[in-house]
């Protein structure tokens, strides 16, 4: 079907002024920006590209053993099961779990398909008694070796949970406590930098600036290496330091931001004016005024024009 209307960008003779301007703006959009091959590779690495667990029949594999278990229990066969389970760990242990899972308790997997049948199966009361009876001491069972991809999967699961809590459920505190668990478990995890980024978002949304600054200090040690949104984070760090009246440190943070934020006009604007203000207030009036003058030339109608003029006086 042919489009019943012409796109604004394709209108050779626009019917009115508004359509002409809309066409002008549409043409200014250009092609959609992409990501460099290295950035794509970074995302791939951070995601781990590990094999997906579950599948269309995963609910069968997760439900049938549990159902069989309870049928057998109902038939009075739990002594046999207890012996069998004491000898071997449950085959339904999540493959990425680093904790030994020696009991017959069904393990809730991550996949959404599995959740409902497992929860239904968990309800019956006898389960607790059996679990108690058959669970050998944890130390007696050697933990299964955890492969790199398994631990990455667990990392991504925890991080995904923290992100979901923060962004979808607006539960910043819950997100932070999930992240605490993540950092305790994976102090040098592959997704540690991404976790720090989420941690900062959560702390800032709770207005816990002091703690956010401590995280920033930690990240600044290696110059935000490997951090997603590094230019933005540098700007935010500078702004927080400026508010705390830690001007020399703010100046350093904004300096890094000015160097790295050229690609984003908004960030560059904030970084440049921030560095100017920080320099002036830390005693480097000449350097600060030069930054502010540069800001006024580059952004004559910018957001911080009044502030820049005020600082220059």
């Amino acid at each position: 079907m042919i489009a019943p209307v012409k796109r604004w960008a394709e209108e050779a003779t626009p019917a009115d002024e508004a359509t002409r301007i809309a066409g002008e703006w549409s043409r200014a959009m250009g092609p959609a920006q992409g990501l460099s091959a290295s950035a794509l590779a970074q995302v791939r690495a951070q995601l781990g590209m590990v094999p997906v667990t579950g599948g269309p029949w995963s609910w069968v594999t997760s439900t049938v053993p549990t159902a069989l278990l309870f049928i057998l229990l109902g038939a009075g066969g739990y002594h046999w099961l207890a012996r069998a389970n004491a000898e071997a760990p449950s085959p339904r242990v999540a493959p990425w779990s680093v904790e030994p899972m020696p009991t017959v308790l069904p393990v809730l997997h991550v996949g959404p398909v599995e959740r409902a049948p497992c929860e239904m199966a968990v309800k019956p009361k006898p389960k607790r008694a059996v679990a108690k009876a058959v669970a050998p001491p944890v130390a007696a069972v050697a933990p299964e070796p955890v492969s790199e991809s398994d631990s990455l999967l667990e990392e991504s699961r925890l991080l995904g949970m923290a992100m979901r809590l923060l962004r979808r459920e607006l539960d910043a505190k819950g997100s932070l406590s999930t992240l605490d668990g993540y950092f305790a478990r994976f102090p040098t995890g592959k997704l540690e930098r991404d976790a720090r980024s989420v941690q900062l978002d959560a702390l800032l949304s709770l207005d816990r600036k002091e703690e956010a600054l401590k995280v920033f200090d930690l990240l600044a040690v290696d110059n935000f290496k490997g951090m997603p949104r590094a230019p933005e984070l540098r700007v935010v760090q500078g702004e927080l330091l400026l508010r705390e009246e830690r001007y020399p440190e703010a100046s350093v943070a904004f300096d890094g931001a000015v160097r790295s934020a050229e690609g984003s006009l908004d960030l560059f604007e904030r970084a440049l004016v921030g560095r100017g203000i920080a320099r002036v207030r830390s005693g480097d009036r000449a350097g600060g005024n030069a930054d502010l003058a540069r800001y006024l030339v580059r952004f004559p109608g910018g957001r911080f024009v009044h502030q820049a003029h005020a600082e220059m006086k």
Binding site: L47, T53, P112, G160, D194, P228
Partner: peptide, 14 residues
């Protein structure tokens, strides 16, 4: 991109 594919990873089995 990362967030989208994290969701994809979690929901792909379903």
């Amino acid at each position: 991109l990362q967030e989208v594919f994290l969701t994809v990873h979690q929901e792909l089995p379903g």
